[in-house]
């Protein structure tokens, strides 16, 4: 499902060159739930961004569903992100001006074939799946942190992507809310076969995943 071969990422400015990833090789099977761990600055988020096609590797090859995507155009990459990948961020990144259901509809807006009513139906179903059907017309600022992250998960799964990329999804939540979010992710993985790659610092959470990829100074250490 996700294939990284000899991936490198170097950030260059006129004065300095920072190596973020060196020779990363990773293969994630469909339906797998893996976690990426490592100290701060080890390249976890960079790796997640490369997998999610938000960042372009400086070298190596990235394939999604068997298709090498490294040379795709902006428009084509946007289409792959829209159809194949859902993102969950540590700080939720909900749009405060939009209601819960409008936030969840965002990925669906970029699917031309969907009508307004179909979008609304899919968004409501996604909210139902994360247990937030009673909050659809609320605004993000009216929700708790845990609820906001549920909305973010609903947004990530609204378009039924086969891959979920979660960047420290419980990092801004207390342990109880973090556990609830983890349960939602596990359910999505187990019940619906969604492939999940999660960046975390928390060994308690990574222990619940099938495999742990460890990074140190941009290199895989396991």
């Amino acid at each position: 499902m996700i294939q990284l071969e000899s991936v490198e990422k170097v950030y260059r400015t006129s004065k300095i060159e920072t190596v973020a990833l060196t020779n990363v090789n990773l293969s994630v099977r469909g339906g797998e739930f893996i976690s990426i761990m490592g100290p701060s600055g080890s390249g976890k988020s960079t790796l997640l961004n490369v997998i999610g096609l938000l960042d372009v590797p400086s070298g190596g090859k990235v394939s999604i569903n068997g298709q090498p995507v490294t040379s795709y155009s902006d428009r084509h990459l946007a289409q792959v992100r829209n159809e194949a990948i859902g993102f969950i961020f540590q700080t939720f990144h909900l749009i405060n001006d939009l209601s819960v259901v409008d936030n969840v509809e965002i990925p669906l807006l970029y699917r031309r074939k969907l009508s307004g009513s179909e979008r609304r139906k899919l968004a409501l179903r996604a909210l139902d799946r994360v247990g937030l059907h009673a909050r659809v017309h609320h605004f993000p600022s009216q929700l708790s942190g845990g609820q906001q992250q549920r909305v973010a998960i609903a947004r990530a799964i609204a378009g039924n992507p086969r891959i979920l990329l979660a960047d420290e999804p419980t990092g801004n939540l207390d342990s109880q809310m973090g556990d609830e979010i983890m349960e939602v992710l596990k359910r999505l993985n187990e019940d619906e076969g969604t492939t999940i790659v999660m960046v975390t610092h928390d060994p308690r959470l990574s222990g619940q995943t099938e495999r742990i990829v460890r990074l140190f100074d941009g290199r895989q250490v396991n």
């Binding site: 428009r75 946007a78 992100r81 990925p107 699917r111």
Partner: peptide, 16 residues
Amino acid sequence: ASEIGVRKAFGASSWT
């Protein structure tokens, strides 16, 4: 910028 990032992450192209 955050909204722009979210929209890009979820499939908006630059032209959109």
